[in-house]
Design a binder for these strands. Structure first.
Lengths: 219, 219
DNA sequence: GCTACATTCAATTTATCGCTTGAATGTTAT
DNA sequence: ATAACATTCAAGCGATAAATTGAATGTAGC
């Protein structure tokens, strides 16, 4: 085993692969794609102990997937840059295209996925310009505040039922949330359709929109 | 830890990550990106035993990164599809942008990397159309035969010195090989420049060209 | 059917990973 | 300074992965 440049590089790249190789870390990356978070806040969201979360975060940092900065008592973690979102997208695409089990899960839990005909970013931009649609962000308010689509209104899924009146102006609703596998927007679309409001899903979530360089309203 | 759809999906995606998490497997993917290979041929190229190679290949197959087909006595493996090349490219980009160690290795071993100003596919296509350049494939003949850039000539690096006359027609040479970290084209460009032949590197290798959907001459 | 050969499987050893627990570090606020 | 708190470190245990070896499977060709 010579220690040529290729071996050295592939060892480094393999470390990135290993960092992607745990479901909890992928979930952490999804959350960090919404906004930066402290260790404890993140631990709570993914249901792990603080110490365990801290270790996973350091694993991710060593692999160059996240970065951290200190603010007072807190250490805030976020994605290293947009290339991480691109990498996750590529990972998901390989899974969707080549793993039968992924296909099975998608069909089982996201059966609407096929019938819902998700909206592309291009279509959303065009129809927003024409004033034909309402863009709905169903994530929690703090994530919305950290950055959202231009003109989007924020109704967390938990409040959708009581606030559905805000959307009943006849325009089609396009809902989005954290990413392609985030259930929030699926459920929002289902709930809206039940109430007779035309609704579709944006095909991706906020991180993908940002990584594509599309316009955002940021804090 | 509920077993909701997200957990199920992230477990699958994490398996892809783990499959990327070993330098030997990354090297195998680079080779399989050139052409399909049997187990023994691949084992020889990466310097592993046949049994070990077989196990790695099955790991890669379970993760949806490679596929196999039987031909006579041989089982031929190849990349599952172009999305795998895209994934590898995204992995490399994260490493280049966020890992200091990768940067250090690249500067150390590929010091020409900055001064060489690699050629983009677009530029290559345009200058080929104008007849201004010679496209040089420095990979082994069998890989060349399995697919190469339109109009490219094949001179393996080992034969470059003796066959350099074939390139001395005054046109600039654009060399490429297996991928962004393949040393063959770096060395070819250095050798040609030493002999006064203007030469540059294509920024990526054959698999990336193919994944971009650009034209190929295939077997 | 039998032999040759490519590939895969099974069993083993060694190393690494993931999680827990409890202590240590470093920053803020009094 | 000291107390409070967020985060990280260190040690330990069970589980998983990598490489080696030798046996088993499956296909081709006679």
């Amino acid at each position: 085993m010579s220690t040529g440049p290729k071996q050295a590089l592939y060892s480094e790249f393999a470390a990135i692969g290993r960092a992607l190789g745990h479901p909890h870390r992928l979930e952490m990356l999804e959350h960090l794609g919404q906004r930066e978070r402290g260790v404890e806040a993140l631990a709570q969201r993914v249901g792990l102990t603080v110490a365990n979360t801290s270790q996973h975060l350091q694993h991710l940092r060593r692999a160059g997937l996240v970065k951290s900065r200190r603010q007072g008592k807190f250490v805030l973690y976020s994605l290293a840059d947009e290339s991480v979102t691109t990498l996750l997208g590529a990972l998901f695409q390989v899974g969707e295209r080549n793993l039968a089990e992924v296909d099975r899960v998608l069909r089982g839990y996201f059966s609407e996925r096929d019938s819902m005909e998700p909206v592309t970013p291009e279509e959303l931009l065009e129809r927003t310009r024409e004033g034909l649609v309402t863009v709905l962000d169903v994530r929690p308010p703090d994530e919305f505040a950290a950055g959202h689509l231009p003109g989007a209104i924020n109704i967390p899924l938990s409040e959708l039922e009581e606030r559905v009146g805000e959307l009943a102006d006849g325009r089609e609703v396009i809902a989005y949330c954290r990413g392609p596998y985030c259930v929030l927007s699926f459920e929002a679309v289902a709930a809206l359709r039940e109430r007779g409001i035309p609704a579709r899903r944006l095909e991706d979530g906020l991180p993908e929109w940002r990584a594509a360089g599309l316009p955002l309203e940021e804090a």
